[in-house]
Nucleic acid binder design. Sequence first.
DNA 1: TTAATAGTGTCTTTAAGACAGTATGTC
DNA 2: GACATACTGTCTTAAAGACACTATTAA
Lengths: 233, 233
Amino acid sequence: MTLSADAKTGMLLSTALISVDIAAFVLRDNKLQVLTHSRPDTDLPALPAGRIEPELDSCLDNTAERHLLTLLDTPPTYLEQVVTIGNDFRDTRGWSLTVVYYALIPPSAELKLGTDAEWHDVSAMGETSTLAFDHGALVKQAMERLSKKVQYSTLPLYLLPETFSLSDIRKVFEALLGKAPPMRSIRNRFLSDNLLQPTGTMRYGSNRPAALYRINPEHEPRLFNRLYHTTAS
Amino acid sequence: MTLSADAKTGMLLSTALISVDIAAFVLRDNKLQVLTHSRPDTDLPALPAGRIEPELDSCLDNTAERHLLTLLDTPPTYLEQVVTIGNDFRDTRGWSLTVVYYALIPPSAELKLGTDAEWHDVSAMGETSTLAFDHGALVKQAMERLSKKVQYSTLPLYLLPETFSLSDIRKVFEALLGKAPPMRSIRNRFLSDNLLQPTGTMRYGSNRPAALYRINPEHEPRLFNRLYHTTAS
DNA sequence: TTAATAGTGTCTTTAAGACAGTATGTC
DNA sequence: GACATACTGTCTTAAAGACACTATTAA
């Protein structure tokens, strides 16, 4: 450990004992995946994480985004702080503290070349941890927040590509919760209040083509005042 | 600053630059108040706050509760982490980080003797800060979370004394939001699902007496799946 | 009896959900 | 034409809200 060395330079916060960990979610092949990478100090893949760099980061959100961008070529469409976990048992070295974020990544994002970044199926993360440290538990907490919030917000949109159909929204629910509200309800909700803009284009397949939409750029992520209950756990 | 001294002893987290700040809310005279105390290093009153003590605290929640109990004789009925704020501008000394909590305190709680703890009207906290450091902004953030959550959870109950009437619940909304849902809606919501137990006792006044209830001890704080919309801002 | 607050009955409204039916593309 | 998926119409349901009404105490 380089604690006293760091401290002497005054960079007290940039130590191994305080970190920012990010669960970056993407939807690929209708499956929810989380960004991992390998680290020299552990065999299992780990979440993107790292120290606060006082010189580089003016706030915690910056720290999170900076660490993400070491592995990804695009910034997240949505970034939210989940919780800060601090205790004396998550790290064998003693008290440690991590600020946990989750990020929603559009499927167009690419892993940076030259890194060992990988997408890791969230469903494959069973009981026995497949991630380093307590990162499995952190992903779980982030997932719980996301799974809840998806039911009363426009968040599902932020996992989609720039243009998408209404059924694509339904697939987000399916991937995250294993079940989805009826299309009727999705249409009512997302076609209200000018949340979406029709692109005028269609997606063709071996069936009736689907109208494509994009997020109305006038709108920030927003909350509704009811949860879908068909998706309640 | 005693940064290097602290760091040399290995107590890296127990420094002035990382703290836990608590906005402890109470309802007195139908007004929302927040717990403050005076500190030697500032003129304005400050929130209860302090360092993590690795020897005393096994997790952050403990730290928050420990600092609260230096000023109060009773633990909070509800404690929740709001957010962690970390940036390079909230403290003139440079990067600093604080984990912000809010606590709901029952009106039966008493300030500890020998402390300079005080209740501070939240409504009196206008633009010009009446609290030390950025504590006014922290209270504001905690209030925003509480004001929202009160509309879709059983949280209003946790600001009430052990026994209370249904109109008392309404008064919580009134104090927090300036407006309240109709009694019809409050009754429908809070008398459902055995959330409350009738005490069998009444509160008498110069009017029809009110039936008194207590929280059903079987129930943890819980969320509903709709917001009241009469209280929407 | 009146003032004051407690509590009920009942109709309306809002948004979700069930479900049947129609539309429009490819093959 | 069959098929698959997109989309619409319409009735039901759950819970909030409006509002008029009744109830029960103290003074």
